[in-house]
Amino acid sequence: MSKRVAIVTGGSRGIGRESAQRLAADGLAVVVNYAGNVTEAEATVAAITDAGGEAIAFRADVADAEQAEALFDAAESTFGGVDVVVNAAGVMHLSTVADLDLDAFDRMVRTNVRGTFVIARQAARRVRDGGAVITFSSSQVGLRTETYGPYAATKAAVETLSLVLARELRGRDITVNAVAPGPTATALFLNGKDEATIDRFKAIAPLQRLGTPSDVADLVSFLAGPSRWINGQVIRTNGGAI
């Protein structure tokens, strides 16, 4: 088999970028998927290659079936196949159920639910035996914090899809797990929050801090590599918040 290869969606920033860099450090060739910010995607690739790794950037809307297929095509034509898929692409709009704009809800459903499904469909068809599929949920599915309801609903769908897919891939030695971060210091989480709000989130976990992208990337690395007996699980990486 050629070198192991990972596709990381949403790989230009935040948890996706940290996961891409961590997998490259683990020895995988990485396809860094991005939706629009080519500068950030190229910065991720540069960080990987400067450290001696292999990576390319590839633009694709994860919810577009043809673009998702092209993303997997690029991984196969450049590096020879796909062994690991990390679907970290996601969007979040916070609002009470009563006040959420339906266009914002539709955008979350399109990226978080449809996007996860479209990428999972390609992964089910094309990940090589012995590989791993890692989706992203959220600890908000369990925390149920006010204004997170619509976002958490999309992530609950991701959890169900992931656990079913794990069973559908029976016999191929492919693991499927959902990572569910708690409050994590990313631009997506920090945007629009004042210091008092951030402090309240820090206090939720017994470790009394926000998670970091590298905390989550540690788990992604484990699920993508040495862990072969964890399958069909939702793993909450949140410092004990729930």
Rank of each mutant, 00 (worst) to 15 (best):
L169A: 08
G81A: 11
L219A: 10
A217P: 03
Q21P: 00
E66F: 04
A43H: 07
A180R: 03
V31W: 02
S95T: 10
E66T: 14
G171H: 05
V234S: 06
A205M: 10
D101C: 06
G131K: 11
E159H: 14
G14P: 00
R126W: 09
R228S: 10
A89D: 05
S221E: 06
K193E: 02
R172G: 11
L188A: 13
D64R: 04
G11E: 00
A20I: 04
R110H: 06
G14D: 01
T186F: 00
A89P: 01
T44P: 00
N112G: 02
A241F: 02
R125I: 11
A25E: 15
S95V: 10
P181C: 08
L100D: 08
L210W: 03
A98C: 03
V109S: 08
A157C: 09
A224F: 00
P181K: 06
G225Y: 01
F201A: 12
A35D: 08
V113K: 05
G131Y: 09
V38E: 15
S137N: 09
S19Y: 01
D99V: 09
G11Q: 01
T145C: 01
A98S: 12
T175C: 05
A46D: 14
R128C: 09
A25W: 00
F189Q: 03
G149S: 15
S137L: 05
A185P: 01
T154A: 07
P206G: 07
L190F: 01
T96F: 05
T44L: 04
V158A: 09
E76C: 05
R59I: 03
F79W: 07
V86C: 10
L190K: 04
A196K: 08
A132C: 09
V84L: 07
S137I: 08
G130V: 12
D173H: 11
G239R: 06
D64N: 15
E40C: 05
A68V: 15
F222I: 09
T135A: 14
R59T: 11
G240C: 07
S19A: 15
K193C: 04
S139T: 13
T116V: 13
A152L: 08
A178F: 04
E159V: 15
A35K: 07
A75Q: 09
A25V: 09
A196P: 02
V84E: 05
G115W: 01
A187W: 00
V220Y: 01
